[in-house]
Write a protein that binds this DNA or RNA. Structure first.
Length: 871
DNA sequence: CTCTTTTATATTTCAATATAT
DNA sequence: AGATATATTGAAATATAAAAG
């Protein structure tokens, strides 16, 4: 079997115009498929899919990284693909591209493309359509995402363990050697590639061949249900790549085509280098990808949206928006994806896998051979190491479509670019991975509707490479010791995928409409002893990517305070964008069902209003007798459907001390997961979308003496607070504890993710049962060495908070630049030690905490505006 | 309350221009 | 210098959701 089209170089046949028709082997074990390339317009070639009872490839002759075609060992019976096409060029050039490891191909591509046979490990890590995300959405991962937290869980049973150990032993991590790069992650991760002085180091094929080859006979197959073991992505179209089009990339739904298209792989001519292989750049929605109901309700000949038809045609006709390079890169991307997709999509064979939620914040230590998938929640700090965003991106960046030209790199508010720095490690060059993550109400994961886009050009100073990691484009930039492990991200653009393309993917449950906010996610893997790596991750603030939203929706960037006495009356300064003279500020409390329990408009002081500033008098809360701080939110309202994201705000009991709360944008999701006990404030909160705590906060349940008053209930996973724009408001740390608590055990918990950030009080909360393990923090001493940690020992709700430093107050820096976590904000000088009733919070000054200065409204405004103004 | 039509909003594509390669 | 590509901006065209009838 030959697949000339899958050589990972620029010179192979034009995959952009390649359409591979294939059939699910269960249905058509020996269906021959066709490939059509532009330069073979009259020569259709075979792509035979031979049904095999087990996944894999047989009698395959795949070009390896050396450009040679070789017969792969037949590990097991498997489906095979036969593609015979005449390459436009000979292979040696491909070899070049592979061996030098340069270019956009990247480690991932070369590795994957080297092996079209089935690496078992990949099967391990591949998410299947049976394995829905715990969030209820396959979303960005969709049904074929390999990066599933589930599949990639390092513990896959004995066999898996052996495999991993073996893999680890075979390939050492050499972050600096150009010839001994770290082992790529099993799911094809760009992994912890190191940088040589001259740039990227490459991974010689010998580094992974044995592993991959060996994987092909691993335990997955032994456990694989016979009927499903061959659910190869190529055979079971799930993503856009499996969406059929005509050879010209045009969607066709003629009856004659339907059967064929159901199992057609499509490589669109429109794949730009930056386009996501998961997306069909042009109308290419596979029947297979359509929801069942969709099929039933529609006539294949007419259910294609006219727009899709039109654009498909346009694309097929034109494709002119791409340069040759782009096309080449597109080919690479496609090839990469094809190759990646060549890996089995295996159903979960381990019964416990489904309980391994991707929402869990995982321990940051991984084997080099089993790096965490992109949807795993990782901390930003562990031990002395912390990955930190020094300069956040601007909250608006208009993404570009595949049909458009680039819209440039994401910029920072000061006109520069985002800056990321790794603290606590300065030994060897590392790779900083970037990808586009979600910014919605759920845990961070790769965004289904957006992809990273690599910006090149004269103005781009940062070298970068892109790679596909399980349908997610990952950009890799070097973190170099000579740069103090700091990188300016001037090469990261954002690509928007068409909603319809993504939504129609099989298994996709997310909708793209109004899902236009993303976060840049930065991740790095720091080599540790014994072949392990410490993986840290930090997401940026949310970035609004739609043109319209960016132009019209009000955006709150900062606020002078996050709380106010329940009586209201205080002035709140709001800094942001798109404020109008008619902007209103609405304070809302929402209940369980999402309906407003209370709503009031703050009085905007018009004479102080500016396009980027609002000053509003906080309205009093309806119930002045609240006993505990009450989390509400506010948003800026510019008229119908033009409102900002909800922002956190809290009403304090009249007897409670004033507390300055770190400003954080409040996403809708705050409430959607129920009440949280926030680390920074110790406040009860319930989100704007309605929550369990909404009911608790309702008048019926707010009585602390009532049995129904259950302030701290183990509930759904607590979400990490979303990143906040800045932390430079004058604030001081504080500690919190329960007031009026007789329990001698009521104290700050030293074992939490962030020491001191949690309370422990058996009288108020079963915290001990929740906080069962050590934290990521250096202070805990548990994870400091980062050596023996394999799986999280604490619940996600707590660990999640450690995910990003952005979730916490900016900590003071030590002389060597390291940041020391601090606990909570507040002014130790402005509150009393007096009790505030059961369940309320009392703040205690922290010994070494800097004192907050007494500030005026003008001070706040000045600080806010100064920080926001371009440098 | 349901269905249809209209309106408003959101998404996607296209065009123009400037600049870089 | 010309051709081509990219970056940037703006807005038209189209799709879709919400509101009105």
């Amino acid at each position: 079997m030959r697949i000339h089209s899958l050589n990972c170089n620029h010179e192979t046949i034009d995959l952009q115009n390649l359409t591979v028709h294939h059939s699910r082997p269960t249905l058509a074990p020996d269906v021959h498929s066709l490939i059509h390339t532009p330069d073979m317009s009259s020569s259709w070639v075979h792509s035979g899919l031979q049904h095999c009872p087990r996944a894999g490839f047989t009698e395959g002759k795949f070009p390896n990284s050396n450009g040679r075609t070789r017969a792969e060992p037949t590990a097991i019976d498997c489906p095979s693909i036969q593609i015979t096409a005449i390459p436009q060029n000979s292979l040696p050039k491909a070899e070049q591209g592979d061996s030098n490891g340069n270019g956009s191909q990247g480690i991932l591509g070369s590795r994957l493309l080297d092996h079209l046979y089935l690496p078992l490990e990949h099967g391990f890590y591949r998410e299947t359509s049976h394995n829905l995300s715990p969030t209820g959405s396959l979303s960005s991962r969709s049904c074929f995402s390999d990066a599933s937290s589930i599949e990639s869980y390092p513990y896959t049973g004995e066999d898996g363990e052996m495999e991993l150990n073996d893999a680890t032993s075979r390939v050492a991590f050499h972050s600096t050697s150009p010839h001994h790069s770290p082992l790529p992650s099993p799911e094809g991760s760009p992994s912890i590639r190191g940088f040589s002085d001259n740039g990227w180091s490459s991974i010689p094929p010998q580094n992974h061949h044995p592993v991959a080859r060996r994987r092909s006979a691993g335990p997955v197959f032994r456990n694989c249900p016979p009927d499903e073991a061959y659910l190869h992505p190529l055979l079971l179209p799930q993503g856009p790549l499996s969406q059929p089009t005509s050879p010209r990339g045009k969607r066709r739904y003629s009856n004659a085509d339907v059967v064929h298209q159901r199992s057609t792989i499509q490589a669109s001519p429109e794949h730009s280098p930056t386009s996501s292989p998961i997306a069909s750049p042009r109308g290419n929605i596979a029947d297979e990808a359509l929801p069942t109901s969709y099929h039933k309700a529609t006539d294949p000949t007419r259910d294609v949206p006219s727009k899709s038809r039109r654009t498909s045609e346009a694309a097929a006709d034109g494709g002119s928006c791409q340069s040759a390079d782009e096309q080449s890169l597109s080919q690479q991307t496609v090839k990469r994806e094809l190759s990646r997709e060549s890996f089995l999509c295996l159903p979960s064979v381990f019964p416990w896998e489904k309980s391994k939620s991707s929402s869990m914040t995982h321990a940051p230590i991984f084997r080099t051979s089993s790096l965490p998938p992109l949807d795993w929640q990782l901390p930003s700090q562990s031990g002395l190491c912390e990955l930190k965003i020094e300069v956040e991106p601007k909250p608006h960046h208009r993404a570009h479509y595949e049909t458009e030209g680039s819209r440039g790199a994401v910029k920072a508010a000061n006109g520069g670019h985002p800056v990321v720095k790794l603290y606590g490690y300065n030994e060897k060059p590392l790779s900083l991975q970037l990808f586009i993550g979600t910014a919605d109400e759920r845990l961070l994961r790769p965004h289904a509707f957006y992809q990273m886009h690599r910006i090149t050009g004269k103005a781009v100073s940062t070298s970068s490479q892109e790679a596909m990691l399980n349908s997610t484009k990952v950009l890799e930039v070097p973190l170099l010791p000579e740069n103090d492990m700091q990188a300016s991200i001037d090469c990261a653009g954002i690509l928007k995928l068409r909603n319809s393309d993504i939504e129609l993917r099989k298994g996709e449950t997310d909708i793209g409409r109004k899902n236009t906010r993303v976060r840049l996610v930065f991740r790095t893997h720091i080599p540790q002893a014994h072949g392990k790596v410490l993986s840290l991750q930090v997401p940026s603030i949310p970035i609004e990517c739609s043109q319209r939203s960016a132009q019209e929706l009000p955006l709150v960037e900062r606020q002078s305070s996050e709380s106010c006495p329940v009586t209201g009356g205080e002035q709140l300064v709001i800094i942001g964008q798109n404020f109008t003279p008619d902007s209103k500020v609405i304070f809302v409390e929402k209940g369980l069902d999402g309906r407003n329990l209370w709503e009031a408009e703050g009085q905007v002081i018009r004479e102080k209003a500016q396009p980027r500033r609002l000053v509003v008098v906080v309205p009093p809360y309806q119930d002045g007798a609240i006993m505990v701080p009450l989390r509400v939110h506010f948003h800026v309202h510019n008229g119908k459907r033009r409102r900002s994201q909800p922002q956190r705000f809290s009403y304090l009991p009249i007897s409670a001390p004033p507390v300055m709360i770190k400003s954080e944008p409040c996403d809708d999701y705050y409430g959607s997961f129920g009440p949280t006990f926030t680390h920074d404030t110790g406040f009860l909160s319930h989100g704007p979308m309605g929550s369990y705590m909404g009911a608790l906060n309702s008048p019926l349940h707010r009585d602390p003496q009532s049995p129904a008053f259950t302030p701290f209930v183990p509930f759904l996973p607590t979400l990490p607070p979303p990143p906040h724009p800045q932390d430079s408001l004058p604030m001081a740390p504080q500690r919190t504890r329960y007031a009026n608590c007789d329990s001698a055990d009521c104290h700050l918990c030293s074992d939490c993710v962030r020491p001191g950030a949690e309370l422990f009080c058996p009288s108020h909360r079963g915290h001990q049962s929740l906080c069962q393990g050590p934290s990521f923090g250096a202070q805990s001493g548990h994870y400091g060495d980062g050596a023996s940690l394999e799986r999280p020992k604490y619940p996600p709700s707590y660990a999640a908070f450690s995910q990003t430093s952005n979730n916490f107050p900016q900590s003071p820096s030590t002389p060597n630049g390291h940041h020391v976590p601090i606990k909570a904000y507040g002014d130790p000088t402005t509150y009393s030690q007096e009790s505030h009733g059961p369940g309320t919070i009392k703040q205690e000054p922290m010994e070494s905490a800097p004192r907050a200065q007494s500030i005026t409204l003008d001070d706040v405004t000045e600080v806010l505006e100064r920080d926001l103004s371009p440098s």
